[in-house]
Amino acid sequence: MKIAITGATGQLGHLVIQHLLKLTQAENIVALVRNVDKAENLKAKGIDVRHFDYDSPATLAPALQGVDKILLISANEIGRRTPQHKAVISAAVEAQVPYIAYTSLLRADTSPLGLAQEHRETEQLIHESGLSYTFLRNNWYSENYLAGLAHNIETGILYGAAQNSLISAAPRNDYAEAAANVLLSESHKNKTYELASSTAFTLETLANTISKVSHKTVVYTNLSAEDYKQGLLQAGLPEGLVDVIIEADVEATHGAMLSDRKDLESLLNRQTTPLEETIKPLLM
């Protein structure tokens, strides 16, 4: 069986392939990448690396020849995702790939997050394609809250605008392992999974956990959405990314980032990785 992974050199795609390699032979994996030169390490492992550019639709179907399953990892260009995803789905149909798994967003059908719209549109396109599918609706990555970890420890402050909201974020590696497990089984066809951590946390809990792991005091300081936005912009983050971060925190106060579903636990056959174990490697 040939399993193709889009965005195979990206953060999530690379981890999915690492998990697949633990469970199947390299010859069964197809790495679909925009830049083949960045995939030399995958080639060296015996993985079939193929050029795959969402923005060149005519080249996509040939790259999917002989593929039995494809994992479509959502593209990272917000606002352009739907046409890019549509090109991949159309190519999968043309190449007669019978099954597609897609990394969507937690409760994509009802989520208030602006990001959800393109995920809803992609899920609809997959439904309309007639392909067998699995929707892996990933909640936020824990790492999204740890991007400024070194700075948090240095200043002793973790800023946010989520108040005391509970957040069911899980580490990227857990979502990747779950995706690999789904791809290697035949029991997940036409199912939708809401993927979230076993234990929710507040940003205050996160600050306390950073303190515990780093042995440096870090305190959570809640800001208004506007003050937090200005702080992130002053720190040099691009406005589009800042808007996504702010919206996530604001919507967290309305429960958008919280889930009690145990789908991720079920796919992993274990509890999700605790915050402490997620933070430790980032300090090494």
Rank of each mutant, 00 (worst) to 15 (best):
L125S: 13
L125Q: 11
I126G: 07
H127W: 13
E128G: 08
E128T: 05
S129P: 06
G130T: 06
G130M: 03
Y133P: 12
T134K: 11
T134C: 12
T134Y: 11
L136D: 15
N138L: 09
N138A: 14
N139F: 02
N139A: 15
N139G: 13
W140E: 14
Y141I: 02
Y141C: 10
E143L: 02
E143H: 13
E143F: 13
E143M: 07
N144P: 14
N144C: 09
Y145Q: 01
Y145P: 03
L146T: 09
L146V: 11
L146I: 01
A147M: 11
G148Y: 04
G148A: 11
N152C: 12
N152R: 07
E154R: 11
T155N: 09
T155I: 06
G156A: 00
I157K: 10
I157A: 00
L158W: 02
L158K: 14
Y159H: 07
Y159A: 09
A161M: 09
A161F: 01
A161V: 14
A162Y: 05
Q163P: 04
N164D: 15
N164F: 09
S165C: 13
L166N: 04
L166A: 11
L166F: 08
I167M: 05
I167W: 08
I167D: 01
S168R: 00
A169G: 07
A170W: 00
P171C: 14
R172C: 05
R172L: 14
N173F: 03
A176R: 08
A176P: 14
A176E: 06
E177Q: 15
E177W: 06
E177H: 10
E177P: 01
A179L: 08
A180C: 03
A180S: 02
A180T: 04
A180E: 01
N181I: 05
N181V: 05
V182N: 02
L183A: 09
L183M: 10
L183V: 03
L184M: 12
L184C: 07
S185M: 02
E186F: 03
E186G: 10
S187H: 13
H188Q: 14
K189F: 13
K189E: 15
N190S: 13
K191C: 12
Y193P: 07
E194D: 11
A196W: 11
A196R: 02
S197E: 08
T199R: 04
T199S: 08
A200W: 03
F201T: 03
L203Q: 11
E204S: 12
T205I: 13
L206Q: 04
I210V: 09
I210H: 00
I210M: 00
I210T: 04
I210A: 01
S211M: 09
S211P: 08
S211N: 13
S211A: 02
K212C: 04
V213Q: 00
V213E: 03
V213N: 07
S214Q: 12
S214D: 08
S214G: 10
K216G: 13
K216I: 00
T217Y: 14
T217V: 12
T217W: 11
V218Y: 09
